[in-house]
């Protein structure tokens, strides 16, 4: 009995461990390559350990692109997007999940259907609009239109419908909380796991967006990190070292953000009011 539990557990960790290795190795590799001098990046057999070119790669990187500005733009756009998406989508998700109002089902269907429209060609009319608005080379076109995205509303609605118990809301009402009070004091704290998922997705999507900033923020000082990094990828004057370090530095904030949000996913509901 006991040994079978140990075997089971060992097997569980083995499966998880192998999968973790398969999933994580390429990322380790990105950081390893970032520390090798540009002319030694590609080697057979490949590098498994860190090299000594980090300082030189960094010097190359900041001399070729306004790295600090680009990093700041990327971070600013991603954070403002993430915060507004979490706020507006949780609010809308709460309404769709817990209120009954006229046209609710129709409006909800509309939200979901809007996600199914392939938006690939929207960039042309959208660009025209942004020129009229005078928003080119600003953060606005990458933040404002998506502040209450359909995806986030869909996600929050599905989660709140199940994980926000009706009696908690009823109890809050009896305690005299109004609609806004319930939203701020009950819904936001209790929706943390789903908000964390939404936060990660929004941040990642914004951070990795390439075509948007490429076209809407063409100035090198105004643009984001991935677009600026693509300059290093020119074919003839190819500095692999700076490029690899740029990739690694682009990845780092994403990993940190994920670790930060992902704590919320598990810890969110386990403690607190929902137990009852």
């Amino acid at each position: 009995m006991k040994s079978s539990i140990i075997v089971k557990k060992a097997l569980l960790y083995l499966i998880l461990g192998i999968m973790a290795l398969v999933f994580a190795y390429p990322f380790y590799n990105v950081f390893v390559l970032a520390t090798w001098p540009g002319d030694q990046v590609l080697r057979s057999p490949p590098h498994f350990f860190f090299g000594g070119g980090l300082a030189e790669n960094f010097r190359q990187l900041v001399s070729r692109i306004p790295f600090g500005r680009n990093f700041f733009n990327s971070l600013g756009i991603a954070l403002t997007s993430t915060i507004s998406v979490i706020f507006f989508c949780t609010m809308a998700g709460f309404a769709f999940a817990k209120y009954r109002f006229r046209f609710r089902d129709q409006l909800y269907f509309f939200v979901i259907a809007s996600m199914a429209i392939p938006g690939f060609l929207n960039i042309i009319p959208f660009y025209k609009m942004m020129v009229r608005f005078g928003w080119i080379n600003t953060w606005l076109p990458l933040v404002v239109p998506g502040m209450a995205g359909a995806f986030g509303i869909f996600l929050m609605t599905q989660f709140l419908e199940n994980s926000l118990p009706n009696d908690v809301i009823e109890a809050a009402r009896i305690d005299g909380l109004g609609d806004l009070g319930i939203l701020m004091r009950i819904v936001f704290p209790l929706a943390r796991p789903a908000m964390a998922v939404l936060g990660i997705v929004t941040f990642v999507g914004s951070w990795n967006n390439f075509t948007g900033p490429l076209i809407l923020m063409p100035k090198i000082e105004a643009t984001t990190l991935p677009v600026a990094l693509s300059l290093l990828n020119s074919r003839v004057d190819n500095n692999q070292g700076a490029l690899m370090l740029g990739n690694a530095l682009t990845l780092l904030p994403l990993i940190l953000i994920f670790v930060f949000f992902s704590k919320q996913i598990i810890s969110g509901l386990t403690a607190g009011a929902v137990k009852g």
Binding site: I200, N208, P226, T250, L251
Partner: peptide, 18 residues
Amino acid sequence: KEFFKTSFFLPYITSTVS
């Protein structure tokens, strides 16, 4: 948990090009 969760989620946060 954190380690496994992060490992499995890492591919999602990488850009398609990489």
